[in-house]
């Protein structure tokens, strides 16, 4: 049997809200070490990779590897039936064709159970090569969300340029052009508010804002986001999930025609 109890159930709610518009169906790979998911969007432009380690659950039981194919829109609807402070348990019997979701109120006086039919998903796994990135930018996730939203006023694409001074987002379109420049923070009260640029070499890449906007829906998961860039390789956008794992998005750059 597979059973994973997540005391902070709202993490799962935020996760599914973050990916449901990008990915329709996904296979949750359940292993003794934890739960993972990898899926491409329907256009095969971006990739989502989720990891939730077993030690983030309490308890976590996985006797043998299981693949749970789940429609994320259905899952999102079911998760809306839980409260933010509910403890959420995912369970799957060995021979079952469904995943069971249990929502437990903090005082355990309300228990709801939903049985979700599993779906068969033909999902090819991609191997993500290890990359030494030219630039790694860390910033508040709310700032990332705001910049992406602001740049969308101007056009479909954003050019992100990292240098020793900081990071510059710029866009141009029919109505005009604009940019947002973030300097590296010198002194901040909280690390979560800082902007840092770890630079090997200056790099400038162009990306589709539509996808960055979808990625930024993960902002409620984590106060900070990390953007990793290298010339001619996909951008890595990473949100850490408490102390238990991460939600990563990869986006292929745009190239000049």
């Amino acid at each position: 049997m597979f059973e994973a109890r997540l005391p902070q159930g709202q993490i799962l709610k935020k996760l599914i809200e973050a990916v449901r518009e990008l990915v329709t169906d996904a296979n949750f790979e359940c292993k003794p070490s934890g739960l993972s998911l990898q899926a491409m969007d329907s256009s095969h432009v971006s990739l989502v990779s989720l990891l939730m380690r077993a030690d983030g659950f309490d308890p976590y039981q996985c006797d043998r590897n299981r693949t749970l194919g789940i429609n994320l829109r259905t899952l999102a609807s079911v998760l809306k039936c839980s409260s933010n402070d509910d403890i959420i348990t995912i369970r799957a019997e060995d021979d079952g064709d469904s995943a069971i979701l249990i929502f437990e109120s903090p005082s355990s006086d309300r228990l709801s159970e939903f049985d979700l039919k599993l779906v068969d998903i033909d999902n090819e796994q991609l191997v993500i090569p290890d990359t030494q990135y030219d630039a790694v930018v860390r910033m508040p996730s709310a700032e990332f969300q705001r910049i992406v939203r602001d740049m969308q006023i101007l056009g479909d694409s954003v050019t992100i340029a990292c240098s020793k001074d900081g990071v510059k987002f710029s866009a141009n379109g029919e109505i005009g052009s604009g940019s947002v420049r973030l300097k590296q923070s010198s002194a901040v009260d909280s690390e979560d508010d800082a902007v840092t640029v770890d630079l090997q070499q200056a790099v400038s890449l162009t990306f589709a804002l539509r996808y960055l906007s979808l990625f930024s829906k993960a902002a409620p998961l984590s106060p900070t986001v990390t953007l990793s860039f290298s010339k001619d390789v996909p951008l890595l956008v990473e949100f850490r999930i408490a102390d238990m794992g991460h939600l990563r998005f990869y986006l292929a750059p745009k190239i000049d025609e």
């Binding site: 491409m40 256009s43 095969h44 432009v45 971006s46 990739l47 090819e124 796994q125 991609l126 191997v127 993500i128 090569p129 056009g155 479909d156 694409s157 141009n172 162009t206 589709a208 390789v233 996909p234 990869y250 986006l251 292929a252 750059p253 745009k254 190239i255 000049d256 025609e257």
Partner: peptide, 14 residues
């Protein structure tokens, strides 16, 4: 502005 490269161009199939 530019053409979109698919992600499968960078990550190979297992």
């Amino acid at each position: 502005a530019g053409s979109q490269v698919p992600i499968t161009h960078f990550f190979y199939r297992d």
